[in-house]
Simulated scan of single mutants.
Amino acid sequence: MQHRMVLNETAWFGAGSLSQIVNEVTKRNFKKALLVTDKTLIKAGVVENVTALLAKHQLPFMIYDEVVPNPTIATVQQGVELFKRSGADYLIAVGGGSPQDTAKAIGIIINNPEFADVRSLEGVAPTRNASVPLIAIPTTAGTAAEVTINYVITDEENRRKFVCVDPHAIPILAIIDAEMMASMPPVLKAATGIDALTHAIEGYITKGAWELSDALHLKAIQIITRSLRASVAGEAKGVEEMALGQYIAGMGFSNVGLGLVHGMAHPLGAFYNVPHGVANAIILPHVMAWNAEFTGEKYRDIARAMGVARVCGMDLNEVRAAAVQAVKQLSADVGIPARLRDVGMKEEDIAALAQAALDDVCTGGNPREATLAEITELYRQLY
């Protein structure tokens, strides 16, 4: 059996590591950046941490701040046109998953113009060239977009999200500086944190999982479980640990895939603009319970990593229930809603949501095969 691992060329970790961008840009002889972000981060002063460094060292840049949550085809197209006019030769993505996904799509299209139709990037697109060099600076501890080969774009016209999987899209450099995440509001820390936990758990039980990815995912579960509550409470150590935990989860799932939780979460973002982390958080324990009989001993490992006591003495059904309960408790402790109706899901859309989830590329990695009727029933239970 052959397995592939694709990771960043370079990654920097730790408080203050943002300063490394100057050396990294200089030694690569980059000339001008298009900095991809959103207006909220501009207003909050987060982006200024980056632009001040660039300006101080006379490193030219232009800002594209039109990124929206659940970035759209139009968002990407606008960014592509700006890049062409800007004279830039590299990209800097500052933000959570949305700016990073947008930057990935821009970079791929610039160097692979035959994929100018953004929809053509869905799935495993046969691009020939690596993206425009991309430096990823996350401001949330959850998506791990800075280390993944995946990106997700929303097709508003057809009310759907589509996942793009392309090793050519991975950022060449990731800077994971917890100081860039410190200003996240608690609700965002909670949602992105459970998103990271979802990545780790789904990556651990997905069909493509193997020993190296298992080691990464179990360590990520351990770090996220012990640090998320503290991160949401505003403790600096918790934020720093979450920054690391979510990155480790990304190292794993980017290379082995995910499952039905993500398959069901993506349509919620496309239909109602539900934040991706919130959708995952609500769905995760229910799909975990539904998958349980198809996971062997893996829930025992998950329960142990989450700090459940006496897992060795439990029978398999008990330990599976304990793992699900540990996830439910963590979600409740950080304030995640319990039902999809609480985030705007409409009962009359369940049939369309279920079909979209069945068609989602992530669903194929689920350890238990799902039918349209079963996904429909899961949405009904979650409503």
Rank of each mutant, 00 (worst) to 15 (best):
R380W: 10
L353C: 03
L244E: 06
M288N: 05
T206Y: 13
I170Y: 04
L353S: 04
L378R: 00
L268S: 00
N49G: 11
Y64Q: 10
M62A: 15
M62T: 10
V50C: 13
Q100W: 07
Q58A: 15
W210I: 01
D117R: 15
H199A: 01
S331P: 02
H262P: 01
N255D: 02
I283M: 13
V187H: 12
A289S: 12
A265S: 14
Q381L: 15
A33E: 03
I336V: 14
A190K: 00
V232Q: 02
Q381V: 15
D65A: 13
R28S: 12
A145L: 06
T295S: 11
R229I: 07
G16E: 10
K328T: 03
H217C: 15
V118P: 02
V343S: 11
G245V: 03
H168V: 00
D359M: 13
L59T: 02
N255Q: 05
Y379L: 01
A215K: 12
V47Y: 09
A74S: 14
K161F: 11
T143H: 15
V132F: 10
V256K: 07
I350P: 07
Q2N: 12
R300W: 08
L35G: 05
I223Y: 08
P267F: 04
A373K: 04
S17M: 07
H168K: 15
Q2C: 09
P113N: 11
D155H: 06
G307R: 09
G97Y: 05
H3C: 15
E179P: 00
D360S: 10
A270W: 08
L82E: 12
T206W: 14
G307W: 04
A182G: 02
L91F: 04
A103Q: 03
G142C: 13
E122M: 09
D301I: 04
A55N: 10
V80H: 14
A145F: 08
E146M: 15
I224D: 01
T198I: 06
A305R: 10
A356K: 15
E318F: 09
P285A: 05
E157M: 08
G16Y: 15
I176F: 03
L121M: 11
L54R: 14
T139N: 11
I336N: 14
I221T: 01
E146G: 09
K219A: 01
I135C: 04
D101Q: 10
Q78P: 01
V361R: 08
V187A: 15
G107T: 02
R128A: 14
A88C: 11
L41P: 09
I205G: 04
P126G: 11
Y247G: 02
S227Q: 06
V67W: 13
L7C: 12
N112K: 05
I21E: 12
L378V: 01
V319F: 08
G252L: 12
T10Q: 15
Q246L: 05
V278G: 06
G252S: 07
T295Y: 10
P113Y: 12
H168I: 00
V343Y: 14
K298H: 09
G277I: 02
A88S: 13
R300I: 02
A220G: 03
P138W: 05
I21P: 03
